[in-house]
């Protein structure tokens, strides 16, 4: 019991953020019309590319003076995350462009 309370207290900020953002996520997208299911999913998918920040931090503070596994893998992580971000937002935009109201 004590352990749980200590854990809760130590990570209270993180726990607050998690709980509130789950609620926020549910609130924000509930009642979305099914017309938008695909674009919403694909747009959200692009946002999950936010892992790119992790990649930038990782490679940003890596030692560039020699070729290392860490460096190569980090660069690959950035590359894949960028694909996710750029491709995801672009394809969502392309889809939504088609949804423009026709007369």
């Amino acid at each position: 019991m004590e352990d749980i309370l200590i854990y809760f207290y130590t990570y209270k900020e993180a726990i607050f953020i998690i709980v509130l953002s789950i609620y926020l996520g549910i609130e924000v997208i509930s009642n979305v019309p099914s017309v938008l299911h695909t674009p919403l999913m694909s747009g959200a998918n692009a946002i999950s590319g936010v892992i790119i920040i992790g990649g930038i931090i990782l490679v940003g503070h890596s030692d560039l003076s020699h070729f290392s596994f860490r460096l190569v893998t980090g660069i690959l992580a950035i590359l894949f995350a960028t694909l996710n971000v750029a491709g995801g937002f672009a394809v969502t935009d392309r889809m939504l462009e088609m949804f423009k109201k026709k007369k």
């Binding site: 953020i17 998690i18 789950i22 999913m41 959200a44 946002i47 936010v50 931090i57």
Partner: peptide
């Protein structure tokens, strides 16, 4: 992505990731 956000204690990653997680779950 959210879990990785905790490694860096990066709020943008945490919030962005959880938002997507919640939206996907719904």
């Amino acid at each position: 992505a959210a879990l990785a956000g905790f490694i860096y204690n990066n709020q943008a990653m945490i919030l962005g990731g959880i938002l997507v997680g919640a939206a996907g779950s719904i």
